[in-house]
């Protein structure tokens, strides 16, 4: 085996330390959350924290008995999937057109909308939806969550489209292809992995966003993450139940990310390299 220059070994060392550090920062609360959800309620806040305990599903049982948990989960899915599809449906053509025409200011506007705090949209949305009597409807939530999903889809896909040699589109034009067909038959298949990445990111961000749901939903359309806030405050907080809810909430995005991690990484770095 060739020995590496010492500089490079130092860098490797630092790299490992940083990775471990990041791992600890990310994994500790996650592990805490998952473990706590399986502890008896009174042990959750015990100090020092118990590491060895008799696991119980008590918290999960309480959760499903005390709250319409399943229907909240379904609400979450409807809103998240709906807004993700909405984002793809409009974001993908928007990114294609922005890349084709090299007019990117709409994408910048979309990004700024994404950067702005959600409260910026919340009040106008609330007033508008109330006027058309849509508060509490799925559509109200799906549309507001599109504020999150659209910019994600556009910005993830833009470098993918930019990466396709222009001559391929031109060849299609010469071959008698209309712009819409170029989009569907040439461009979309060539950014398939980008579509997957953007769909997953949109799903995760939409799933995790609770602010809109807190204000714009009613008891029928409340999403999981907004509903979980019911556990806090009212009298004494049920930490065990909260941990169980949090674990369930965290599950879908984590699962998704685990399944597609390779795509995700290549997709994110593509964006980074192309700037």
């Amino acid at each position: 085996m060739a020995t590496k220059p010492s500089d490079s070994r130092w860098l490797d060392c630092i790299n490992v330390i940083l990775l471990v550090l990041a791992g600890v920062i990310v994994m500790t609360p996650t592990a805490w959350m998952v473990l706590s959800s399986f502890k008896p309620s009174h042990e959750v806040t015990a100090y020092p924290p118990t590491l060895i305990f008799a696991p119980t599903v008590e918290n999960y049982v309480t959760l499903s008995e005390q709250t319409p948990f399943l229907s909240y989960a379904v609400n979450s899915l409807i809103v998240t999937v709906g807004s993700t599809l909405f984002g793809l449906l409009f974001g993908a053509p928007a990114a294609f057109v922005a890349s084709w025409t090299r007019i990117t200011w709409p994408a910048v506007v979309a990004l700024m909308a994404r950067m702005a705090p959600g409260t910026l949209f919340l009040l106008p949305w609330y007033v508008m939806f109330r006027q058309v009597d849509m508060i509490g409807s799925y559509w109200a939530l799906i549309l507001t969550h599109a504020v999150i999903t659209l910019p994600i889809v556009i910005w993830v896909l833009l470098p993918y489209f930019d990466n396709i040699p222009r001559s391929i589109f031109e060849a299609a034009q010469v071959d008698g292809c209309s712009p819409f067909r170029i989009f569907r038959r040439i461009a979309l298949p060539l950014v398939a992995s980008g579509l997957a990445v953007s769909a997953i990111l949109a799903f995760v961000f939409s799933w995790n966003f609770f602010l809109f749901s807190l204000v714009l939903s009613n008891s029928q359309t409340k999403t999981l993450i907004a509903a979980s806030f019911n556990f806090i405050g009212e009298g004494s907080t049920n930490w065990g139940g909260l941990m169980a809810a949090a674990t369930i909430i965290a599950l879908p995005p984590l699962l998704l990310a685990a399944i597609v991690q390779r795509w995700l990484i290549s997709g994110l770095t593509l964006g980074a390299v192309k700037g």
Partner: peptide
């Protein structure tokens, strides 16, 4: 009109 491009521009997929 048919055109042969310098980089061939074949559809990769």
């Amino acid at each position: 009109i048919a055109m042969v491009f310098q980089d061939y521009a074949l559809y990769p997929h």
